[in-house]
């Protein structure tokens, strides 16, 4: 038997989605604009896209680039961020570099990267990598910096070498913060995936979307937006499951009550 609070929490996301679609439907009917199909029209177009082999291959190619870009970025950024957090010299070297890269929209670098590496998978994956790296580095850095010194001292007294302390104390202690960065990174991976395909049209989910836009197939455009949105929600939910499992030891046990009345 589920308590009312649990039940509400479970169905809340579904309610939010239904609410959004209803607002969309009403707004579209009210505006009567050709380029703004109703929610129902857009949903009807989804099976056509997912049933088409060509489109599916495109979407899977996008997901593959995203997975590789995200994976490589995480494997590169976590060690770098942790090192920066524990060594002032490493931080002093990399901080200015990152400060320069941070405000630049990664997609804006694409035309240049395309000149070097062409319009293929490498360029798009590299842009995804750049988009994901910064938040993961930043959060790993902050997480490593905040690790209690006495914890490292305890490890040193047990005989852990500096490298062992980094891997076996700093990494787990900073994990909640690192995973926060990875979650942001995941969303950014999705965004940079679509924008990269908008700039270098060739294949991918973004390609379907912008081709349909060019041809005035607005129900396909909006269907693709729903598909990309759904991918985002699913990936995020999946990631949160993994995260919650990894850092159960740090989660607060109770919901924060808004009032005690």
């Amino acid at each position: 038997m589920m308590s009312p609070a649990t039940l509400t929490r479970r169905i809340a996301p579904a309610l939010a989605c239904v609410g959004l679609l209803m607002v969309w439907q009403v707004a579209s009917l009210a505006l009567k604009n050709d380029s703004f199909p109703t929610a129902i029209e857009a949903i009807r177009a989804i099976p056509d896209i997912l049933g088409d082999k060509e489109s599916l291959i495109n979407i899977l190619a996008s997901l593959r680039r995203m997975a590789i870009g995200f994976g490589v970025a995480v494997l590169f950024s976590i060690p770098l961020g942790l090192l920066m957090g524990r060594s002032r010299a490493v931080a002093a070297f990399f901080n200015p570099l990152l400060m320069i890269i941070y405000p630049v929209p990664k997609a804006a670098l694409m035309p240049i990267i395309m000149l070097w590496l062409g319009v293929g998978d490498v360029t798009k994956t590299l842009v995804i990598f750049l988009g994901v790296s910064l938040p993961v580095i930043y959060h790993s850095f902050e997480g490593a910096k905040a690790v209690e010194e006495k914890m490292l001292w305890s490890g040193a007294a047990m005989g852990l070498s500096p490298l062992q302390r980094l891997v076996r104390i700093v990494l787990p202690a900073a994990l909640p913060e690192i995973l926060t960065g990875c979650r942001t990174g995941l969303v950014l991976a999705l965004i940079t995936m679509i924008t990269s395909e908008m700039i270098a049209r060739q294949s991918g989910a973004g390609n379907i979307l912008f081709n349909a836009l060019d041809m005035g197939q607005y129900d396909t455009v909006f269907a693709m937006i729903i598909i990309v949105g759904a991918m985002g929600i699913c990936l995020d939910a999946l990631f949160d499951q993994v995260r919650a499992r990894l850092v159960r030891w740090s989660e607060p046990q109770f919901d924060m009550p808004l009032s005690f009345s």
């Binding site: 209690e148 006495k150 914890m151 001292w153 305890s154 104390i169 787990p172 202690a173 994990l175 850092v247 030891w249 740090s250």
Partner: peptide, 10 residues
């Protein structure tokens, strides 16, 4: 240590 400094993930 006064701060305990336990490993919270263990």
């Amino acid at each position: 240590f006064q701060e305990f400094a336990l490993f919270p993930w263990k």
